[in-house]
Amino acid sequence: MTKLSVLDLVPIREGEGPSEALAAAARLAQVAEEVGYHRFWVAEHHTMVGIAGGATSVVLGHIGAATRTIRIGSAGIMLPNHAPLLIAEQFGTLDALFPGRVDLGLGRAPGAGPILGQALRKDLHRAAEAFPQDVAELQALLTGEPQLPIVATPGLGANVQMWLLGSSLFGAQLAARLGLPYAFASHFAPDHLDQALSVYRSQFRPSAALDRPYVAAAMNVFTAETDAEAELLASSQEQSFVRLRSGDPGKLPPPVPGYRDTLPPSALAMMDGMMRVRAVGSPATVRAAIGRFAERTGADEIVVAGATYDPAAREESLRLTQAALA
């Protein structure tokens, strides 16, 4: 069976704040661990009032302390925002706290709009251009090969699994060249999925980290007892996508019955284009959809994404999804 993992953006729901979002994320990770998901990922986003995962390594410390065995990690850390030394120290610390459980997924996008560069005191365009060099430096800080004139403590020798993330051919090519596992963000940017996976596999070079290509692909998954109930749950995230693309992002809203019917054709087409990699419905419906996606991609791992307004509904969705594919 294809491995299942979880991506949680630590959503802040309407009427709540970061404290409730972080508590819900910890409970979700515990459920994921209990029912057998392979790993639990959170992602770096900034200046978004509806996402509480900006301080990603701190959030991972919180998730790690709430769990015992599930792998935890970033999907991802946006490396242009950071100095490689600081990320090596942060994830070296996480590995010291939670040995053998930590993943470091790296992305090239900044994770917010242009104003972020000013706030971070960084030229993010130039930093993105240096991404391959920064990835290599971060690898060296963790492995000691090649030896650098500075030592990350904690960091050097940490048993951290490094990933590259992407939604285009660039990340696929770099992951292949470095011999690293590759995760594709098909849950919100599916256009280049098939081509990127083909490029990654055909150009892959074995490395000390990995002897063969390893692919994870993300999809939006909402599982409930009936198709109608699952579609209702998915409407909260659908609203968030439309608001984000309309320049009016906010906290995660309650579900709206018949939400799709309220949208103009342009907004519906935009949303369906972004979220077309999806499995929404009863356990049987979701099993079939994930099966088709796994067959299409040949992915070693499917990453289950998708936020619900009621945290308990996301927990139940994870349970039903895992049971459907068992």
Rank of each mutant, 00 (worst) to 15 (best):
M1H: 10
L7D: 02
L7N: 01
L9D: 08
R13M: 09
G17P: 04
P18A: 14
A21L: 04
A23N: 02
A25Y: 02
A26W: 03
Q30G: 14
Q30P: 05
E33W: 11
E33I: 09
Y37R: 02
F40S: 01
F40N: 00
E44H: 02
H45Y: 03
M48N: 14
G53H: 07
G53W: 02
G53E: 08
V58I: 14
L60W: 03
A65Y: 09
A65N: 12
T67L: 12
R68I: 06
T69V: 14
T69Q: 14
R71H: 13
R71N: 09
G73E: 06
M78A: 11
P80M: 00
P84S: 07
I87T: 15
A88G: 09
A88H: 05
T93P: 07
L94W: 08
V102N: 08
L104G: 05
G107A: 05
P110I: 05
P114H: 09
P114G: 10
L116N: 07
R121V: 13
H125A: 15
A128C: 08
E129I: 06
L142A: 11
L148M: 11
P154Y: 06
V160Y: 03
M162I: 14
M162Y: 05
G166S: 06
G171D: 02
Q173L: 02
A175N: 00
R177I: 00
A185H: 05
H187P: 07
P190S: 05
L197Y: 09
S198K: 13
F204I: 12
R205G: 04
S207G: 10
A208P: 06
D211S: 15
D211K: 15
P213A: 10
Y214T: 03
V215D: 07
A216F: 05
A217G: 11
A218M: 10
F222S: 03
T223Y: 03
A224K: 00
A228Q: 15
E231Q: 13
E231R: 12
S236P: 03
Q239T: 03
S240K: 07
R245P: 05
S246Y: 03
K251V: 04
P253N: 10
P253F: 02
P254A: 15
P255T: 06
L263A: 05
P265Y: 04
A267G: 12
M275C: 13
R278S: 11
G281F: 07
G281Y: 08
G281R: 06
S282C: 12
A284C: 11
R287P: 04
G291Q: 08
T297S: 08
G298H: 01
A299I: 01
A305G: 03
Y309W: 14
D310K: 00
A312I: 10
A312H: 11
R314A: 03
A324E: 06
A326E: 15
A326N: 13
A326Y: 05
